[in-house]
Design a protein around this nucleic acid. Structure first.
Length: 491
RNA sequence: CGGGGUGUAGCGUAGCCCGGUAUCGCGCCACAUUUGGGAUGUGGAGGUCGUAGGUUCGAAUCCUGCCACCCCGACCA
Protein backbone atom coordinates (compact mmCIF):
# COMPACT_ATOMS: atom_id res chain seq x y z
CA UNK A 1 0.00 0.00 0.00
CA UNK A 2 1.34 3.45 0.88
CA UNK A 3 4.61 1.96 1.99
CA UNK A 4 5.87 2.87 -1.41
CA UNK A 5 3.99 6.10 -2.09
CA UNK A 6 6.37 8.26 -4.08
CA UNK A 7 7.35 11.38 -2.15
CA UNK A 8 6.30 14.80 -3.37
CA UNK A 9 9.86 15.95 -3.49
CA UNK A 10 10.95 13.00 -5.53
CA UNK A 11 8.27 13.25 -8.23
CA UNK A 12 5.24 15.41 -7.56
CA UNK A 13 3.39 14.23 -10.61
CA UNK A 14 3.84 10.57 -9.79
CA UNK A 15 2.97 11.23 -6.16
CA UNK A 16 -0.36 12.62 -7.32
CA UNK A 17 -1.09 9.73 -9.66
CA UNK A 18 -0.27 7.12 -7.05
CA UNK A 19 -2.21 8.90 -4.37
CA UNK A 20 -5.38 9.14 -6.44
CA UNK A 21 -5.12 5.47 -7.24
CA UNK A 22 -4.00 4.13 -3.84
CA UNK A 23 -6.47 6.18 -1.85
CA UNK A 24 -9.21 4.62 -3.98
CA UNK A 25 -10.40 7.89 -5.45
CA UNK A 26 -10.29 6.99 -9.13
CA UNK A 27 -8.62 4.85 -11.74
CA UNK A 28 -8.08 4.85 -15.47
CA UNK A 29 -10.84 3.08 -17.35
CA UNK A 30 -10.39 1.08 -20.51
CA UNK A 31 -11.79 4.05 -22.40
CA UNK A 32 -9.05 6.40 -23.48
CA UNK A 33 -8.88 9.53 -21.38
CA UNK A 34 -11.87 8.56 -19.25
CA UNK A 35 -11.71 7.68 -15.59
CA UNK A 36 -13.68 5.57 -13.19
CA UNK A 37 -14.45 7.51 -10.04
CA UNK A 38 -14.41 4.92 -7.29
CA UNK A 39 -16.87 4.90 -4.38
CA UNK A 40 -14.54 6.61 -1.92
CA UNK A 41 -13.67 9.33 -4.41
CA UNK A 42 -17.26 9.71 -5.48
CA UNK A 43 -18.44 10.14 -1.91
CA UNK A 44 -16.17 13.17 -1.62
CA UNK A 45 -17.65 14.54 -4.85
CA UNK A 46 -21.13 13.92 -3.45
CA UNK A 47 -20.28 15.98 -0.40
CA UNK A 48 -19.04 18.77 -2.63
CA UNK A 49 -22.21 18.55 -4.69
CA UNK A 50 -24.42 18.67 -1.63
CA UNK A 51 -22.79 21.82 -0.29
CA UNK A 52 -22.72 23.59 -3.65
CA UNK A 53 -26.24 22.53 -4.54
CA UNK A 54 -27.54 24.06 -1.33
CA UNK A 55 -25.68 27.27 -2.03
CA UNK A 56 -27.18 27.41 -5.51
CA UNK A 57 -30.67 26.88 -4.14
CA UNK A 58 -30.07 29.44 -1.41
CA UNK A 59 -29.23 31.99 -4.10
CA UNK A 60 -32.46 31.28 -5.95
CA UNK A 61 -31.42 28.72 -8.55
CA UNK A 62 -33.22 25.54 -9.57
CA UNK A 63 -31.83 22.41 -11.15
CA UNK A 64 -32.85 21.19 -14.59
CA UNK A 65 -31.45 18.83 -17.17
CA UNK A 66 -30.62 19.40 -20.83
CA UNK A 67 -29.60 16.85 -23.49
CA UNK A 68 -26.20 15.25 -23.79
CA UNK A 69 -26.32 15.72 -27.57
CA UNK A 70 -26.22 19.00 -29.39
CA UNK A 71 -27.04 19.38 -33.09
CA UNK A 72 -23.90 20.38 -34.92
CA UNK A 73 -25.51 23.48 -36.36
CA UNK A 74 -26.07 24.91 -32.85
CA UNK A 75 -22.37 25.09 -32.16
CA UNK A 76 -21.62 27.20 -35.18
CA UNK A 77 -24.17 29.88 -34.29
CA UNK A 78 -21.78 31.74 -32.04
CA UNK A 79 -18.46 32.29 -33.82
CA UNK A 80 -16.10 32.62 -30.86
CA UNK A 81 -17.77 29.70 -29.13
CA UNK A 82 -17.33 27.27 -31.99
CA UNK A 83 -13.73 28.43 -32.36
CA UNK A 84 -13.10 27.60 -28.73
CA UNK A 85 -14.48 24.09 -28.75
CA UNK A 86 -14.36 22.74 -32.29
CA UNK A 87 -11.04 20.99 -31.79
CA UNK A 88 -12.15 18.90 -28.86
CA UNK A 89 -15.62 17.70 -29.72
CA UNK A 90 -16.83 14.12 -29.94
CA UNK A 91 -19.22 13.66 -32.83
CA UNK A 92 -22.02 11.14 -33.22
CA UNK A 93 -22.50 10.26 -36.86
CA UNK A 94 -24.58 7.05 -36.77
CA UNK A 95 -27.37 5.64 -34.69
CA UNK A 96 -27.14 1.92 -35.26
CA UNK A 97 -24.79 -1.03 -35.27
CA UNK A 98 -25.16 -4.29 -37.08
CA UNK A 99 -23.51 -7.66 -37.07
CA UNK A 100 -20.60 -7.94 -39.42
CA UNK A 101 -21.40 -11.04 -41.53
CA UNK A 102 -17.68 -11.66 -42.04
CA UNK A 103 -16.31 -11.48 -38.51
CA UNK A 104 -19.42 -11.92 -36.40
CA UNK A 105 -18.50 -8.73 -34.54
CA UNK A 106 -20.42 -5.47 -34.72
CA UNK A 107 -19.87 -2.70 -37.20
CA UNK A 108 -21.43 0.70 -37.72
CA UNK A 109 -24.40 0.33 -39.99
CA UNK A 110 -23.62 2.58 -42.96
CA UNK A 111 -27.36 2.79 -43.63
CA UNK A 112 -27.85 4.50 -40.29
CA UNK A 113 -26.06 7.75 -40.94
CA UNK A 114 -27.50 10.74 -39.11
CA UNK A 115 -28.95 13.51 -41.23
CA UNK A 116 -27.25 16.03 -38.96
CA UNK A 117 -24.40 14.93 -36.75
CA UNK A 118 -24.75 15.32 -33.00
CA UNK A 119 -22.04 16.76 -30.82
CA UNK A 120 -21.53 15.37 -27.36
CA UNK A 121 -21.80 18.51 -25.24
CA UNK A 122 -18.52 20.16 -24.32
CA UNK A 123 -20.70 22.68 -22.46
CA UNK A 124 -24.38 23.44 -22.85
CA UNK A 125 -24.76 27.11 -23.71
CA UNK A 126 -26.06 26.42 -27.19
CA UNK A 127 -28.73 23.85 -26.41
CA UNK A 128 -29.81 25.84 -23.38
CA UNK A 129 -30.14 29.14 -25.23
CA UNK A 130 -31.97 27.37 -27.99
CA UNK A 131 -34.37 26.21 -25.27
CA UNK A 132 -34.58 29.54 -23.44
CA UNK A 133 -35.83 31.12 -26.66
CA UNK A 134 -39.10 29.32 -26.04
CA UNK A 135 -39.24 30.28 -22.38
CA UNK A 136 -38.74 34.00 -22.64
CA UNK A 137 -41.10 36.59 -24.09
CA UNK A 138 -41.41 39.27 -21.47
CA UNK A 139 -39.37 40.82 -18.68
CA UNK A 140 -41.84 38.99 -16.45
CA UNK A 141 -40.22 35.71 -17.52
CA UNK A 142 -36.87 36.91 -16.21
CA UNK A 143 -34.61 36.15 -14.57
CA UNK A 144 -34.19 32.48 -15.35
CA UNK A 145 -31.86 30.94 -12.80
CA UNK A 146 -31.06 27.37 -13.75
CA UNK A 147 -28.28 24.97 -12.92
CA UNK A 148 -27.58 21.51 -14.23
CA UNK A 149 -25.42 18.72 -12.85
CA UNK A 150 -24.07 16.84 -15.83
CA UNK A 151 -21.20 15.20 -17.60
CA UNK A 152 -19.43 16.87 -20.49
CA UNK A 153 -16.88 15.66 -23.00
CA UNK A 154 -13.81 17.48 -24.23
CA UNK A 155 -11.48 15.37 -26.29
CA UNK A 156 -8.22 16.26 -24.59
CA UNK A 157 -4.89 15.12 -25.95
CA UNK A 158 -3.27 14.54 -22.61
CA UNK A 159 -5.32 13.58 -19.62
CA UNK A 160 -4.74 13.26 -15.90
CA UNK A 161 -7.12 11.81 -13.36
CA UNK A 162 -9.52 14.54 -12.18
CA UNK A 163 -7.37 17.40 -13.51
CA UNK A 164 -8.09 16.84 -17.16
CA UNK A 165 -10.13 13.96 -18.48
CA UNK A 166 -12.03 13.52 -21.72
CA UNK A 167 -15.28 13.15 -19.82
CA UNK A 168 -15.85 14.90 -16.54
CA UNK A 169 -18.63 15.76 -14.16
CA UNK A 170 -19.59 19.29 -13.36
CA UNK A 171 -22.37 21.71 -12.75
CA UNK A 172 -23.13 24.50 -15.14
CA UNK A 173 -25.35 27.37 -14.19
CA UNK A 174 -27.07 29.27 -17.00
CA UNK A 175 -28.98 32.39 -16.19
CA UNK A 176 -30.92 34.91 -18.23
CA UNK A 177 -31.48 38.52 -17.16
CA UNK A 178 -33.21 41.68 -18.30
CA UNK A 179 -30.23 43.95 -17.76
CA UNK A 180 -26.47 43.82 -18.07
CA UNK A 181 -26.10 45.06 -14.50
CA UNK A 182 -28.17 42.20 -13.16
CA UNK A 183 -26.23 39.64 -15.18
CA UNK A 184 -22.91 41.04 -14.00
CA UNK A 185 -24.14 40.97 -10.41
CA UNK A 186 -25.09 37.32 -10.92
CA UNK A 187 -21.67 36.53 -12.37
CA UNK A 188 -19.99 38.11 -9.38
CA UNK A 189 -22.34 36.51 -6.90
CA UNK A 190 -21.59 33.03 -8.19
CA UNK A 191 -17.88 33.71 -8.13
CA UNK A 192 -18.31 34.56 -4.46
CA UNK A 193 -20.24 31.34 -3.92
CA UNK A 194 -17.37 29.37 -5.43
CA UNK A 195 -14.73 31.23 -3.48
CA UNK A 196 -16.65 30.70 -0.26
CA UNK A 197 -16.97 27.00 -0.98
CA UNK A 198 -13.35 26.44 -1.91
CA UNK A 199 -12.01 28.42 1.03
CA UNK A 200 -14.40 27.34 3.76
CA UNK A 201 -15.12 23.75 2.78
CA UNK A 202 -12.07 22.72 0.80
CA UNK A 203 -9.85 24.82 3.08
CA UNK A 204 -8.06 26.17 0.05
CA UNK A 205 -7.42 29.89 -0.35
CA UNK A 206 -8.17 31.35 -3.75
CA UNK A 207 -7.52 34.55 -5.66
CA UNK A 208 -10.63 36.00 -7.22
CA UNK A 209 -9.98 37.70 -10.49
CA UNK A 210 -10.79 38.23 -14.12
CA UNK A 211 -9.29 36.52 -17.12
CA UNK A 212 -7.46 38.34 -19.86
CA UNK A 213 -9.03 38.16 -23.34
CA UNK A 214 -6.62 35.33 -24.23
CA UNK A 215 -7.83 33.15 -21.38
CA UNK A 216 -11.46 34.15 -21.56
CA UNK A 217 -14.28 31.66 -22.22
CA UNK A 218 -15.14 31.45 -25.89
CA UNK A 219 -18.27 33.53 -26.24
CA UNK A 220 -18.00 35.52 -23.00
CA UNK A 221 -17.55 39.27 -22.62
CA UNK A 222 -15.89 38.77 -19.29
CA UNK A 223 -14.67 35.68 -17.44
CA UNK A 224 -14.21 35.72 -13.68
CA UNK A 225 -12.26 32.97 -11.99
CA UNK A 226 -10.91 31.68 -8.76
CA UNK A 227 -7.31 30.56 -8.90
CA UNK A 228 -5.72 28.25 -6.36
CA UNK A 229 -2.12 27.28 -5.84
CA UNK A 230 -0.97 23.68 -5.57
CA UNK A 231 1.93 22.50 -3.42
CA UNK A 232 4.26 22.25 -6.40
CA UNK A 233 3.77 25.93 -7.15
CA UNK A 234 1.50 25.45 -10.14
CA UNK A 235 -1.78 27.32 -10.33
CA UNK A 236 -5.10 25.64 -10.86
CA UNK A 237 -8.28 27.30 -12.04
CA UNK A 238 -10.84 26.11 -9.53
CA UNK A 239 -13.96 27.71 -10.92
CA UNK A 240 -15.19 30.18 -13.51
CA UNK A 241 -18.12 32.50 -13.85
CA UNK A 242 -18.88 34.18 -17.16
CA UNK A 243 -20.70 37.31 -18.14
CA UNK A 244 -21.88 36.33 -21.60
CA UNK A 245 -23.43 39.65 -22.50
CA UNK A 246 -25.98 39.25 -25.27
CA UNK A 247 -23.82 36.97 -27.41
CA UNK A 248 -25.90 33.84 -27.00
CA UNK A 249 -29.19 35.69 -26.99
CA UNK A 250 -28.23 37.17 -30.35
CA UNK A 251 -26.98 33.86 -31.69
CA UNK A 252 -30.24 32.14 -30.71
CA UNK A 253 -32.51 35.14 -31.13
CA UNK A 254 -33.74 35.33 -27.57
CA UNK A 255 -35.56 38.65 -27.10
CA UNK A 256 -37.90 39.93 -24.46
CA UNK A 257 -40.30 42.82 -24.21
CA UNK A 258 -39.33 45.25 -21.47
CA UNK A 259 -41.61 47.31 -19.24
CA UNK A 260 -41.26 50.07 -21.78
CA UNK A 261 -42.60 47.80 -24.51
CA UNK A 262 -39.30 47.68 -26.34
CA UNK A 263 -37.71 44.48 -27.58
CA UNK A 264 -34.20 43.67 -26.41
CA UNK A 265 -31.87 40.73 -26.29
CA UNK A 266 -31.53 38.89 -23.00
CA UNK A 267 -28.36 39.14 -20.90
CA UNK A 268 -26.69 35.91 -19.90
CA UNK A 269 -24.28 34.30 -17.49
CA UNK A 270 -22.84 30.85 -17.08
CA UNK A 271 -20.69 29.40 -14.31
CA UNK A 272 -19.21 26.07 -13.42
CA UNK A 273 -17.01 23.92 -11.27
CA UNK A 274 -16.04 20.36 -12.07
CA UNK A 275 -14.53 17.17 -10.69
CA UNK A 276 -11.28 18.99 -11.23
CA UNK A 277 -11.92 20.30 -7.73
CA UNK A 278 -11.14 16.76 -6.59
CA UNK A 279 -7.67 17.13 -8.02
CA UNK A 280 -7.28 20.46 -6.29
CA UNK A 281 -8.39 18.94 -3.02
CA UNK A 282 -5.85 16.15 -3.29
CA UNK A 283 -2.97 18.43 -4.23
CA UNK A 284 -3.77 21.18 -1.78
CA UNK A 285 -3.26 19.45 1.56
CA UNK A 286 -2.00 15.91 1.15
CA UNK A 287 1.42 14.69 2.22
CA UNK A 288 3.80 11.80 1.64
CA UNK A 289 1.70 9.51 3.84
CA UNK A 290 -1.42 10.04 1.78
CA UNK A 291 -4.51 12.19 1.57
CA UNK A 292 -5.28 14.93 4.02
CA UNK A 293 -8.97 15.75 3.76
CA UNK A 294 -10.64 18.79 5.26
CA UNK A 295 -13.11 17.51 7.89
CA UNK A 296 -16.02 19.30 6.23
CA UNK A 297 -15.65 17.20 3.08
CA UNK A 298 -14.26 13.94 4.47
CA UNK A 299 -16.69 11.06 3.87
CA UNK A 300 -15.44 9.54 7.12
CA UNK A 301 -14.51 12.15 9.70
CA UNK A 302 -13.56 9.84 12.53
CA UNK A 303 -12.33 6.27 12.36
CA UNK A 304 -12.28 4.14 15.49
CA UNK A 305 -9.76 1.31 15.65
CA UNK A 306 -10.10 -1.27 18.41
CA UNK A 307 -7.00 -2.90 19.84
CA UNK A 308 -7.58 -6.22 21.50
CA UNK A 309 -6.05 -9.59 22.21
CA UNK A 310 -9.12 -11.72 22.75
CA UNK A 311 -12.74 -11.90 21.67
CA UNK A 312 -13.89 -10.91 25.14
CA UNK A 313 -11.72 -7.82 24.99
CA UNK A 314 -13.04 -6.97 21.56
CA UNK A 315 -16.61 -7.26 22.82
CA UNK A 316 -15.90 -4.94 25.73
CA UNK A 317 -14.37 -2.39 23.41
CA UNK A 318 -17.27 -2.65 20.99
CA UNK A 319 -19.67 -1.87 23.84
CA UNK A 320 -17.79 1.35 24.60
CA UNK A 321 -17.42 2.26 20.92
CA UNK A 322 -21.16 1.86 20.32
CA UNK A 323 -21.91 4.62 22.76
CA UNK A 324 -19.06 6.80 21.54
CA UNK A 325 -20.17 6.33 17.95
CA UNK A 326 -23.70 7.38 18.82
CA UNK A 327 -22.49 10.45 20.73
CA UNK A 328 -20.46 11.53 17.73
CA UNK A 329 -23.20 10.78 15.23
CA UNK A 330 -25.66 12.80 17.31
CA UNK A 331 -23.41 15.75 16.57
CA UNK A 332 -23.55 15.02 12.86
CA UNK A 333 -20.06 13.54 12.75
CA UNK A 334 -19.56 10.58 10.42
CA UNK A 335 -17.86 7.69 12.16
CA UNK A 336 -16.41 4.45 10.90
CA UNK A 337 -15.81 1.66 13.40
CA UNK A 338 -13.10 -0.41 11.77
CA UNK A 339 -13.57 -3.67 13.61
CA UNK A 340 -12.25 -5.86 10.82
CA UNK A 341 -10.66 -8.87 12.41
CA UNK A 342 -8.60 -9.51 9.30
CA UNK A 343 -6.19 -6.58 9.61
CA UNK A 344 -3.91 -5.57 12.44
CA UNK A 345 -4.14 -2.11 14.01
CA UNK A 346 -0.91 -0.81 12.49
CA UNK A 347 -2.19 -1.68 9.04
CA UNK A 348 -5.46 0.10 9.69
CA UNK A 349 -3.67 3.20 10.96
CA UNK A 350 -1.67 3.43 7.77
CA UNK A 351 -4.66 2.72 5.56
CA UNK A 352 -6.88 5.40 7.07
CA UNK A 353 -4.03 7.86 6.96
CA UNK A 354 -3.63 7.12 3.28
CA UNK A 355 -7.33 7.80 2.85
CA UNK A 356 -7.10 11.08 4.71
CA UNK A 357 -9.53 10.48 7.57
CA UNK A 358 -9.07 13.58 9.76
CA UNK A 359 -9.32 11.96 13.20
CA UNK A 360 -8.46 8.48 14.38
CA UNK A 361 -9.45 7.09 17.73
CA UNK A 362 -7.75 3.97 19.05
CA UNK A 363 -9.21 2.08 22.00
CA UNK A 364 -7.52 -0.83 23.75
CA UNK A 365 -7.61 -2.64 27.08
CA UNK A 366 -5.41 -0.01 28.65
CA UNK A 367 -7.94 2.68 27.70
CA UNK A 368 -10.85 0.72 29.11
CA UNK A 369 -9.04 0.60 32.43
CA UNK A 370 -8.18 4.31 32.44
CA UNK A 371 -11.37 5.57 30.77
CA UNK A 372 -9.28 7.09 27.98
CA UNK A 373 -8.77 6.86 24.22
CA UNK A 374 -5.87 7.67 21.96
CA UNK A 375 -6.79 10.40 19.49
CA UNK A 376 -4.61 11.08 16.44
CA UNK A 377 -5.11 13.92 14.02
CA UNK A 378 -4.22 13.38 10.37
CA UNK A 379 -3.06 16.89 9.54
CA UNK A 380 -0.25 17.13 12.08
CA UNK A 381 0.14 13.42 12.90
CA UNK A 382 -0.13 14.44 16.57
CA UNK A 383 -1.34 11.84 19.04
CA UNK A 384 -2.91 12.53 22.40
CA UNK A 385 -4.56 10.54 25.14
CA UNK A 386 -7.94 11.98 26.08
CA UNK A 387 -10.40 11.16 28.83
CA UNK A 388 -13.47 9.38 27.51
CA UNK A 389 -15.58 11.88 29.39
CA UNK A 390 -17.15 14.47 27.05
CA UNK A 391 -15.17 13.01 24.17
CA UNK A 392 -17.71 13.85 21.46
CA UNK A 393 -17.39 17.55 22.24
CA UNK A 394 -13.64 17.38 22.19
CA UNK A 395 -13.64 15.60 18.86
CA UNK A 396 -16.09 18.09 17.42
CA UNK A 397 -13.76 20.91 18.34
CA UNK A 398 -10.76 19.02 17.09
CA UNK A 399 -12.40 18.64 13.67
CA UNK A 400 -12.99 22.38 13.55
CA UNK A 401 -9.41 22.98 14.55
CA UNK A 402 -8.14 20.67 11.81
CA UNK A 403 -10.31 22.39 9.22
CA UNK A 404 -8.88 25.72 10.29
CA UNK A 405 -5.33 24.47 10.53
CA UNK A 406 -5.11 23.07 7.04
CA UNK A 407 -6.65 26.25 5.67
CA UNK A 408 -4.13 28.40 7.54
CA UNK A 409 -1.31 26.19 6.34
CA UNK A 410 -2.44 26.43 2.73
CA UNK A 411 -2.92 30.17 3.10
CA UNK A 412 0.55 30.70 4.54
CA UNK A 413 1.98 28.72 1.65
CA UNK A 414 -0.02 30.74 -0.85
CA UNK A 415 0.99 34.06 0.69
CA UNK A 416 4.59 32.94 0.64
CA UNK A 417 4.23 31.91 -3.00
CA UNK A 418 3.22 35.27 -4.43
CA UNK A 419 6.34 37.03 -5.60
CA UNK A 420 6.48 40.57 -6.93
CA UNK A 421 8.95 41.12 -9.71
CA UNK A 422 9.81 44.16 -11.81
CA UNK A 423 12.09 42.76 -14.47
CA UNK A 424 11.78 39.94 -16.98
CA UNK A 425 15.00 38.40 -15.67
CA UNK A 426 13.59 38.19 -12.15
CA UNK A 427 10.37 36.88 -13.58
CA UNK A 428 12.09 33.98 -15.31
CA UNK A 429 14.20 33.24 -12.26
CA UNK A 430 11.23 33.04 -9.94
CA UNK A 431 9.41 30.74 -12.33
CA UNK A 432 12.43 28.48 -12.58
CA UNK A 433 13.30 28.32 -8.89
CA UNK A 434 10.23 28.93 -6.84
CA UNK A 435 7.21 28.97 -9.14
CA UNK A 436 3.95 30.07 -7.51
CA UNK A 437 2.17 33.25 -8.52
CA UNK A 438 4.33 35.98 -9.94
CA UNK A 439 2.90 39.45 -9.62
CA UNK A 440 4.14 41.67 -12.42
CA UNK A 441 3.27 44.57 -14.65
CA UNK A 442 1.89 43.81 -18.09
CA UNK A 443 1.17 46.21 -20.93
CA UNK A 444 -2.29 44.78 -21.47
CA UNK A 445 -1.76 43.37 -24.96
CA UNK A 446 -2.50 39.80 -26.00
CA UNK A 447 0.75 39.76 -27.99
CA UNK A 448 2.86 40.38 -24.91
CA UNK A 449 0.96 37.77 -22.97
CA UNK A 450 1.45 35.27 -25.77
CA UNK A 451 5.16 35.96 -26.05
CA UNK A 452 5.65 35.51 -22.33
CA UNK A 453 3.73 32.27 -22.52
CA UNK A 454 5.82 31.02 -25.42
CA UNK A 455 9.05 31.88 -23.67
CA UNK A 456 8.26 30.81 -20.10
CA UNK A 457 5.10 28.65 -20.21
CA UNK A 458 3.58 31.06 -17.71
CA UNK A 459 0.16 32.53 -18.40
CA UNK A 460 -1.75 35.32 -16.78
CA UNK A 461 -3.93 33.47 -14.33
CA UNK A 462 -5.97 36.51 -13.50
CA UNK A 463 -6.23 40.17 -12.84
CA UNK A 464 -7.17 40.13 -9.14
CA UNK A 465 -10.47 41.79 -8.34
CA UNK A 466 -9.18 43.81 -5.41
CA UNK A 467 -6.08 44.83 -7.34
CA UNK A 468 -4.53 48.11 -6.22
CA UNK A 469 -3.72 50.49 -9.06
CA UNK A 470 -0.01 51.12 -9.35
CA UNK A 471 2.13 52.82 -11.95
CA UNK A 472 4.70 50.52 -13.49
CA UNK A 473 6.34 49.20 -16.61
CA UNK A 474 5.54 45.99 -18.45
CA UNK A 475 8.22 43.42 -17.64
CA UNK A 476 8.54 42.44 -21.29
CA UNK A 477 8.01 45.60 -23.33
CA UNK A 478 8.63 48.32 -20.75
CA UNK A 479 5.42 50.02 -21.81
CA UNK A 480 3.44 51.75 -19.07
CA UNK A 481 1.05 49.67 -16.96
CA UNK A 482 -1.44 50.62 -14.28
CA UNK A 483 -1.60 47.42 -12.28
CA UNK A 484 0.10 44.12 -11.59
CA UNK A 485 -1.36 40.84 -12.80
CA UNK A 486 -0.76 37.31 -11.54
CA UNK A 487 1.27 35.03 -13.73
CA UNK A 488 1.84 31.34 -13.09
CA UNK A 489 2.47 28.02 -14.72
CA UNK A 490 -0.89 26.37 -14.60
CA UNK A 491 -2.50 22.94 -14.66
C1' C B 1 -1.31 14.49 -33.31
C1' G B 2 4.73 14.38 -33.40
C1' G B 3 9.32 12.39 -30.51
C1' G B 4 10.81 8.88 -26.70
C1' G B 5 9.60 4.89 -23.26
C1' U B 6 6.66 0.88 -21.24
C1' G B 7 3.09 -3.28 -21.48
C1' U B 8 4.74 -10.64 -18.35
C1' A B 9 -0.66 -13.31 -12.08
C1' G B 10 -4.53 -8.08 -8.47
C1' C B 11 0.27 -4.76 -8.00
C1' G B 12 5.63 -4.25 -8.86
C1' U B 13 9.07 -7.06 -11.73
C1' A B 14 13.22 -10.98 -14.01
C1' G B 15 13.56 -13.40 -18.58
C1' C B 16 13.79 -10.70 -24.55
C1' C B 17 19.93 -8.91 -27.18
C1' C B 18 21.39 -14.89 -28.25
C1' G B 19 13.68 -18.62 -29.83
C1' G B 20 12.73 -24.51 -26.54
C1' U B 21 6.18 -22.94 -22.61
C1' A B 22 7.89 -18.01 -17.32
C1' U B 23 11.47 -15.68 -12.17
C1' C B 24 11.12 -13.10 -7.71
C1' G B 25 8.65 -9.78 -4.13
C1' C B 26 4.02 -7.83 -2.35
C1' G B 27 -0.95 -9.10 -2.30
C1' C B 28 -4.66 -13.37 -2.28
C1' C B 29 -6.57 -18.40 0.11
C1' A B 30 -6.07 -22.13 4.46
C1' C B 31 -4.21 -23.17 9.31
C1' A B 32 -1.47 -21.77 13.59
C1' U B 33 0.84 -18.20 16.55
C1' U B 34 -0.10 -12.90 16.83
C1' U B 35 -2.65 -7.72 17.60
C1' G B 36 -0.97 0.08 21.30
C1' G B 37 2.33 1.86 13.95
C1' G B 38 2.04 -1.43 7.73
C1' A B 39 2.94 -9.34 11.90
C1' U B 40 5.43 -14.37 11.50
C1' G B 41 5.61 -19.44 10.06
C1' U B 42 3.93 -23.56 7.09
C1' G B 43 1.07 -25.01 3.02
C1' G B 44 -1.69 -23.47 -1.42
C1' A B 45 -4.14 -21.05 -5.61
C1' G B 46 -3.52 -17.73 -9.42
C1' G B 47 -0.65 -16.64 -16.40
C1' U B 48 -4.74 -15.97 -23.75
C1' C B 49 3.34 -12.96 -21.53
C1' G B 50 -1.43 -5.82 -24.06
C1' U B 51 -3.75 -7.32 -28.85
C1' A B 52 -4.09 -9.14 -34.09
C1' G B 53 -1.29 -11.11 -37.75
C1' G B 54 3.53 -12.97 -39.74
C1' U B 55 8.38 -15.84 -39.67
C1' U B 56 9.64 -20.75 -37.48
C1' C B 57 9.38 -27.70 -36.10
C1' G B 58 8.71 -24.33 -31.90
C1' A B 59 7.61 -17.18 -30.16
C1' A B 60 7.20 -13.66 -23.82
C1' U B 61 11.70 -13.55 -26.95
C1' C B 62 12.32 -12.02 -34.02
C1' C B 63 9.04 -8.89 -37.76
C1' U B 64 4.49 -5.84 -38.87
C1' G B 65 -0.14 -3.51 -37.62
C1' C B 66 -3.26 -1.96 -33.73
C1' C B 67 -4.51 -0.65 -28.49
C1' A B 68 -3.40 1.34 -23.69
C1' C B 69 -0.41 3.90 -20.19
C1' C B 70 3.93 7.17 -18.79
C1' C B 71 7.44 11.34 -20.08
C1' C B 72 8.45 15.55 -23.50
C1' G B 73 6.17 18.77 -27.19
C1' A B 74 1.76 20.70 -29.70
C1' C B 75 -3.21 21.41 -27.71
C1' C B 76 -6.10 22.58 -23.37
C1' A B 77 -12.88 28.85 -22.15
Amino acid sequence: MAKDLTSRENDYSQWYNELVSKADLAEHSSVRGCMVIKPYGYSIWEKMQAVLDKKFKDTGHSNAYFPLFIPKSFLSKEAAHVEGFAKECAVVTHYRLKTDPETGGVIVDPEAKLEEELIVRPTSETIIWNTYKGWIQSYRDLPILVNQWANVVRWEMRTRLFLRTAEFLWQEGHTAHATAEEAIAETEQMLDVYADFVENWMALPVVKGRKTPNERFAGALDTYCIEALMQDGKALQAGTSHFLGQNFAKAFDVKFTGKDGKLDYVWATSWGVSTRLMGALVMAHSDDDGLVLPPKLAPIQVVVVPIYKSDEEADKITEVVKKLKKDLEDKGISVKYDNRDTQRPGFKFAEWELKGVPVRIAIGARDLENQTVEVARRDTKEKMVLQMNDLANKVEHLLEEIQDNIYQKAKAFRTDSITKVDTYEEFKQVLANKAGFVSAHWDGTPETEQQIKDETKATIRCIPLDNPLEEGKCILTGKPSTQRVLFAIAY
